[in-house]
């Protein structure tokens, strides 16, 4: 028990600090694929965020709402991180309905993100928010469906159910469904149209600067890490039965990084989609995947 708690304290600290580093690693890898040197060190994203915190806080007419909401967003994202098992089951996540709580918090993050980006009332940001909301709605629907399927499949509304999960085609397809929604939900090309630089001048982020932008960016990276952490949990948690919690806790950050890099490489290969094409292309992936998952479940493979 004490082992689990001390392990958890270390890991949650690592988990809260590591997302910007992962982004730095992503930038280095992206630079390699672009045949350029890229940022001097993988810590560059951290330096960027720290530098933003050193800048003065600019409060516009609607700035107060932005400040409050960004603080709320960051707090919610951090709380969400606490409800995620980090490669092993913690006192919080072994709770009877921890998966439900996690799902609700994740949706809460999304809603806060949308309301935060609505605050400046800038036309670019407003168009960006509409795009975000459109994509978010479709994506959240399938993410929640994937999580619900997971609950039914494991027969438990707690993360602990995943520990007992046996590898099967159904499990794989649920994983794929959640993976796709994690990819899209983490705002990557081709689905980063809310921040689409060329036409919207970084869209939803346009009015944020200094510490406000720092908080927003950090929340963004942490949310990304949470989504990939969920996927990593689906891989690592069943392994705890075999390798024990210390080993799984140690490989957990590596698995998150691996998922991060795979997603980063995929998004480098692709271009940005358009808001009217995006829903169609998303449904083209989601609907066959959902049907396949249901069939596999019914057949029982």
């Amino acid at each position: 028990m004490w082992l689990a708690i001390s392990l958890y304290i270390v890991l949650i600290l690592v988990f809260l600090l590591i997302p910007p580093l992962y982004d730095g690693i992503e930038r280095k890898i992206r630079a390699k694929l672009h045949s350029r040197i890229g940022p001097p060190t993988p810590l560059q994203t951290w330096y960027d965020i720290l530098k933003l915190f050193k800048k003065e806080l600019v409060i516009t007419d609607t700035g107060l709402a932005s400040v409050l909401l960004s603080g709320l967003l960051m707090a919610t994202v951090i709380i969400t991180a606490f409800t995620l098992p980090l490669g092993f089951s913690t006192p919080i996540t072994s709770n009877g309905s921890s998966l439900v709580l996690f799902t609700i918090l994740l949706i809460g993050c999304q809603l806060l993100w949308v309301s935060l980006t609505l605050t400046p009332g800038n036309p670019y940001a407003t168009i960006g928010v509409f795009r975000e909301a459109l994509i978010g709605m479709i994506n959240e629907f399938f993410l929640v469906m994937g999580l619900v399927a997971l609950m039914f499949y494991t027969g438990s509304s707690s993360f602990d159910g995943i520990i007992r999960a046996r590898p099967s085609l159904t499990y794989l397809l649920i994983f794929a469904l959640i993976a796709v929604s994690a990819f899209i939900g983490s705002g990557r090309i081709p689905y980063d149209i809310a921040e689409a630089e060329p036409e919207l001048a970084s869209g939803v982020l346009i009015e944020f600067s200094g510490p406000l932008l720092g908080i927003t960016l950090y929340s963004h990276y942490l949310k990304r890490a949470i989504l990939y952490g969920l996927l990593a949990d689906m891989i690592v948690l069943p392994l705890t039965r075999i390798i024990g919690i210390v080993a799984s806790a140690l490989i957990y950050p590596v698995v998150v990084l691996a998922i991060w890099i795979v997603f980063a490489v995929i998004s480098v290969m692709l271009g940005r989609t358009r808001v009217d094409i995006a829903p169609r292309s998303m449904l083209k992936i989601y609907i066959p995947l959902t049907i396949a998952m249901l069939i596999a479940w019914l057949v029982g493979v």
Partner: peptide, 11 residues
């Protein structure tokens, strides 16, 4: 770049 494909831009 405008189509979000920065790899094409760089190469």
């Amino acid at each position: 770049h405008l189509l979000g494909y920065d790899a094409g831009f760089m190469h």
